[in-house]
C-alpha cells in the first residue's frame, strides 16, 4: 500500500478509537436531530418557519454541528498535539514529508464529516420523513464549500496555535460562534434579523444549506464568501504552518 493509503488507514483507526471524536463527531449530530424529533410539537408545521416543521427547518443546523465539531475541534486539536508531541518532527526524519500526514488527517476528518452528515440526512428521512435535499446540486455545492471554509479555518487554528491547549481554547471560541450563527443553540427565527443575516455568511453557511435542502437554489454571494474563506484561510495556514 502507498504511504498515503497507509497513513489514511491508520489515522482512520485512531479517529475511531478515540471515544470523543467517535461519539461527538460522528454520532452526536444525528442523535440531536433524533432527540428533538422525538418531541411531538416539533413535528407540527408552524407559521414561524414558513409552514415547515421545526425538524425540517433545524436539520441543516445539525449539519453545521457535524462539520463544526470535526473541522473546528477535532482537526486542530489533533494536529496541534502532533506538533507538540513531535509526531510531525519524527515524520521529517523519514523519506515522507509530514505534509502527507496533514493530507491524511484532512481526508479522514472530511470523510468523518461526510459520514456524520449522511447519518443526519438518512436518520431524518427514515425516522421523521425529513425530505432528502430537494436541490441536490445546489446542496452539494453549498456543502462542499461550507466544509472547505470550516476546515480551512480549522487548519488556520492548527497553524497559529503553539500548543494543543491553545488550539483547543481558540477552536472552542470559533466553534461556539459557528454553532450560534448556524442556529444550533437558538433556532434562527428566534435570533434578531441582523444576527441571522450575518449567519448567512458565517461558515459553513447554514442558509445556503437550508435553501438547497428545501429546493431553492442557494444565493451566490454567501457561496462566494465560503469559497473565498476556504482559499484565504487555507493559503495563510499553508504559509505559516510550523512543523515543530
Amino acid at each position: 500500500m502507498s504511504s498515503l493509503g497507509k497513513l489514511v488507514q491508520i489515522e482512520t483507526r485512531l479517529f475511531l478509537r478515540d471515544p470523543m471524536s467517535f461519539t461527538i463527531g460522528l454520532l452526536l449530530p444525528a442523535a440531536v436531530l433524533l432527540g428533538l424529533g422525538a418531541v411531538p410539537m416539533l413535528r407540527e408545521p408552524s407559521p414561524d418557519m414558513g409552514g415547515q416543521r421545526f425538524i425540517d427547518y433545524f436539520a441543516p443546523s445539525t449539519l453545521v454541528m457535524a462539520v463544526g465539531v470535526i473541522g473546528l475541534t477535532n482537526l486542530p486539536a489533533v494536529l496541534a498535539a502532533y506538533r507538540e508531541r513531535g509526531v510531525l518532527r519524527r515524520m521529517r526524519t523519514t523519506p515522507i514529508h509530514p505534509a502527507k500526514l496533514l493530507l491524511a488527517q484532512l481526508i479522514v476528518n472530511i470523510g468523518a464529516s461526510l459520514a456524520s452528515a449522511l447519518l443526519v440526512i438518512v436518520a431524518g428521512k427514515l425516522v421523521f420523513d425529513v425530505p432528502m435535499p430537494q436541490h441536490p446540486w445546489g446542496f452539494a455545492i453549498a456543502f462542499v464549500l461550507g466544509i472547505s471554509s470550516v476546515f480551512a479555518i480549522g487548519m488556520l487554528v492548527a497553524a497559529v496555535a503553539p500548543t494543543a491547549r491553545a488550539a483547543s481554547g481558540l477552536s472552542t471560541v470559533l466553534f461556539m460562534s459557528v454553532m450560534f450563527f448556524g442556529g444550533v443553540y437558538l433556532p434562527r427565527f428566534m435570533l434578531p434579523d441582523a444576527v441571522a443575516r450575518i449567519g448567512d455568511y458565517v461558515p459553513p453557511g447554514v442558509q445556503s444549506l437550508l435553501d438547497a435542502w428545501t429546493g431553492t437554489a442557494p444565493a451566490v454571494i454567501p457561496l462566494v464568501v465560503m469559497a473565498a474563506t476556504a482559499i484565504g484561510a487555507g493559503a495563510v495556514a499553508a504559509r505559516i504552518f510550523k512543523w515543530e
Partner: peptide
C-alpha cells in the same frame, strides 16, 4: 538514514505493530 530523536512521541492510541507497519511503508 535512521534517526532516533530526543523527545519525540507517537499518538497514544497507535499500536506497536501499526507504528512499525506505518513507518515501514515510508521506505
Amino acid at each position: 538514514l535512521g534517526i532516533q530523536l530526543q523527545e519525540s512521541r507517537l499518538p497514544d492510541r497507535i499500536r506497536v505493530g501499526e507504528a512499525l507497519d506505518l513507518y515501514g511503508s515510508f521506505y
